[in-house]
Design a protein around this nucleic acid. Sequence first.
DNA 1: ACAATAGGCAAGCACTCACTTGCCTATCAA
DNA 2: TTGATAGGCAAGTGAGTGCTTGCCTATTGT
Lengths: 107, 107
Amino acid sequence: MLAYCVVVADDLFKALADPTRRTILDELTEKSGQTLFEICSRLSMKHRLGISRQAVSQHLAVLEAAGLVETRREGRYKFHDLNAAPLRQIVERWLVPDTSGPQESAP
Amino acid sequence: MLAYCVVVADDLFKALADPTRRTILDELTEKSGQTLFEICSRLSMKHRLGISRQAVSQHLAVLEAAGLVETRREGRYKFHDLNAAPLRQIVERWLVPDTSGPQESAP
DNA sequence: ACAATAGGCAAGCACTCACTTGCCTATCAA
DNA sequence: TTGATAGGCAAGTGAGTGCTTGCCTATTGT
């Protein structure tokens, strides 16, 4: 189970490492259940990102592998939903011991 | 201020993208104020990571640039302290709207 | 002074990764 | 059925990155 968490954590942090993917998460936060083309046009219009459809598709695949995005198919449409739950392990990993400020200890 | 946050966020997530750097954060969570050599030996002994001192030094520089590690010099020693505060912007960015489960909306 | 310890700087290499290009399948409207 | 829309698969490319190697400075102990 520990090994499982480690692997998932790696996918999670690698998914968050790209600024375009973080913007996609922002867009899905603002409006859940968007299609690939809808995300593409939003990135192009709102964020002035000149990026191809295939690139966005690959980003969504990475986000889905990290568990941050869930998908559902309806006919020829594929809707993407945000799942922020995996982010909570970040908080639990380093913010638990002391969340009020920097720590001090004698060397 | 927004641009500043974006830049910092990029450094933050890129710093978290590497598994060795995350292990370093774990070690600093367990024991704050470690020197470079102490971190090196811990990575070697506890985590069986065959990694050079220079590599660890470069990792620490990345973590410091991201604001996750703060340093203080005393003579020939340089102590490293964890600062988990920057992690909170992750929570605030995507966990604020809904932290209980996946969202639903009509396409 | 001299050696050992703690750390820093910079160039080079190998690998990863984001993106493009090209072509393919599936669903829907006319 | 035909064309248009929504999406998928795979190979190639260029930039970024983790790590090594080699050499350097600063502080401390004898």
